[in-house]
Nucleic acid binder design. Structure first.
Length: 570
RNA sequence: CGGGGCGUAGCGCAGUUUGGUUAGCGCGCUUGGUUCGGGACCAAGAGGUCGGUGGUUCAAAUCCACUCGCCCCGACCA
């Protein structure tokens, strides 16, 4: 591509709406443009990178025997009603009606459509296993799109689905995906971790996420730098640091006027939050459950749902007032009449703790949880925090932000059963197809790469997903265009993705653009060096430069590009 | 949905508090010339429903009401 003919609208100044690096740089470098909140246009450079990512994904999916299809984005409400997700998706689903008044949805994911296909054609164990995938636009009406293309309402996802006759088969399909995903992300040049994830309430037995650690990410991971343990905080385990010794040796009720929150209690009584026990009321069906957790900890709703059941919900202040006649801030475990008291493990054995007195304006100090409170069971109910001990090796855990770029998931028979996807097994019995689903966010790979590889000057792409591999910069096009064109053509002949900056502009201008966009290589052609029969090759990543002899430059560059394509594969 | 911020030329902003000529500045754009290894210089130009609607006023970018859109924090959530 000649730059003079290209549509690459770079911006000299930062767009004010962009804060995260990938958002800011992708806008500035002319990769994307916003159309509305959470909806983006991919400009030529951005689309080239997206296509390269998709091609890597395609190659690795095909390599495990997966077959590409293209499903509709415009889907009938009927299928969603069958699986129960017409309701379950709620406001996250974009809905519309056709002229006849039929309900439809813009698909947020494709389990239902795939299952619908499978139930018609996969009738025998002889038809299994199958892996089908597609790359297409998904629609989710996110309550709050953010960070450019990191969280959007319209996005391209690779989603694949496996169909197996046996659970061992599912394990195999899952493992194939896990290996393929590693190859994909390696080839995209990303640094990532694979973490245990929540299998939620879907009844799935296993689920892992592929995460790129980045301050811009929305997910949070607990990682152990000592033994490599890593998990999404939704499911991560860890042992809390013990609370310090309490100043309260004797159990007594104290007057705490207008002091409700943990912070206020901590300040008023001059006691660390870890010695305060929060008492939270949950309603499970028609039962009231009191949940105890340390003041410096947060309840983990995913874990709680596992312990109490999926329908558990926190009681509203009004409900608490109606049943117990006091504000939530003064609820406590002593003398309260509930159906069960469940405590987090970190509360076990706590001595000299501070709890609500079940009486307005009062707390009780010096409480020994084991003896003073009737706890029916201690469970892991809290979200781990930095500094907790690793469950595997005991070293301190770190909690970091991360971008989820892929998720693999053993679905089991949820969809096949609800939608009637059964096959006839060897033994003549009719059985539900065992499914897995596996997603990759194509745009998120692009954004994650920018988050990972950028500096104050701009982006620095991995060779494999750069929009162009090399940028030929002419310092003075009037004097060197013949040489530049010859090299340009020969690089193209050798399969190199090259852009030739033939614009009438100063050298500095071209360098700034090149730095911003982040081409891995630059070939600088200047009259000065050409006189000595030389051209200069510059590397974006480490800002090094080497001189190449004009005669052998092309061969050398081809070797280097090929080498760098490999290196991204690690 | 709660809290905060913003909307003035393609982009970034000033002007709004205290209403008053023809709404400015930088970048970008056009034309001509000079430059040519890190976002060049000189000269001349083009470009605006001041997000929208309604109101107050002799007079509104500026005051009032409503409304639309965008960003950030939180809540929610595949």
């Amino acid at each position: 591509m000649k730059w003079s003919k290209a549509f690459i609208p770079t911006l000299k100044e930062d767009p004010k709406e962009a804060e995260t690096p990938s958002h800011r740089l992708l806008l500035r470098a002319g990769f994307i443009r916003q159309h509305q909140s959470g909806v983006y246009i991919f400009l030529p450079l951005g689309w080239r990178s997206m296509l390269k990512i998709m091609e890597i994904v395609r190659q690795e999916m095909d390599a495990i025997g997966a077959q590409e299809v293209m499903l509709p984005a415009l889907t009938s409400a009927k299928l969603w009603e069958e699986s129960g997700r017409w309701e379950a998706f709620g406001d996250d689903m974009f809905r519309l009606q056709d002229r006849k008044g039929h309900d439809m949805a813009l698909a947020p994911t494709h389990e239902e459509i795939m299952t619908d296909l499978a139930r018609v054609y996969l009738r025998s164990y002889r038809d299994l296993p199958q892996i089908w995938y597609q790359m297409q636009t998904k629609f989710r009406d996110e309550p709050r799109p953010r960070a450019g293309i990191l969280r959007v309402r319209e996005f391209i996802m690779k989603d694949s689905y496996s169909f197996d006759a046996t659970w061992e088969g599912l394990d195999k399909s899952y493992e194939l995906h896990r290996v393929a995903y590693k190859k994909i992300f390696d080839r995209c040049g990303l640094k990532y971790t694979v973490v245990e994830a929540s299998s939620g309430l879907m009844g799935g037995s296993q689920s892992e996420e592929f995460m790129v650690v980045s301050p811009s990410g929305e997910d949070r991971l607990a990682i152990c730098e000592n033994c490599g343990y890593s998990a999404n905080v939704e499911v991560a385990e860890g042992e809390a640091a013990p609370a310090p010794e309490s100043p309260f040796k004797k159990r007594e009720k104290v007057y705490t006027p207008n002091v409700k929150s943990v912070e206020e209690v901590s300040g008023f009584l001059n006691v660390p939050p870890s010695l305060i026990v929060k008492s939270l009321l949950y309603i499970v069906g028609d039962r009231w459950v009191l949940v105890l957790i340390r003041g410096d900890h947060e309840v983990n709703e995913t874990k709680l749902a596992k312990v109490l059941g999926g329908d558990a919900r926190m009681a509203t202040p009004d409900e608490v007032m109606a049943k117990f006649g006091m504000p939530v801030g003064f609820v406590g475990p002593i003398g309260i009449e509930v159906d069960e008291i469940v405590a987090d493990k970190a509360v076990d054995g706590l001595k000299g703790a501070v709890v609500g007195a079940n009486e307005e304006e009062h707390h009780i100090v010096g409480v020994d949880i084991g003896t003073d409170v009737k706890v029916s069971r201690y469970e892991d109910l809290r979200t781990v925090v930095s500094g907790d001990k690793c469950p595997k090796c005991g070293a301190p855990l770190k909690v970091v932000n991360a971008i989820e770029i892929g998720h693999i998931f053993k679905l089991g028979t949820k969809y096949s059963e609800s939608m009637g996807a059964y096959f006839m097994d060897k033994d003549g019995k009719r059985k539900p197809i065992i499914m897995g689903s596996y997603g990759i966010g194509i745009g998120r790979i692009m954004a994650a790469a920018v988050e990972l590889y950028h500096d104050e000057k701009g982006i620095s792409w991995p060779m494999t997903i750069a929009p162009y591999e090399i940028d030929i910069i002419e310092i003075d096009p009037r004097k060197t265009s013949e040489i530049a064109e010859k090299i340009y053509k020969r690089l193209i002949e050798n399969g190199i993705d090259v852009i030739w900056d033939d614009r009438e502009a100063t050298a500095g201008f071209k360098f700034k653009d090149a730095d911003l966009i982040g081409y891995p290589l630059r070939l600088v052609i200047s009259p000065r060096k050409v006189k000595d029969n030389l051209v200069e090759l510059q590397f974006r990543r480490d800002d090094t430069k080497i001189d190449l002899n004009l005669e052998t430059a092309v061969e050398k560059i081809v070797d280097i590009v090929k080498d760098m394509r490999q290196k991204a594969e690690r």
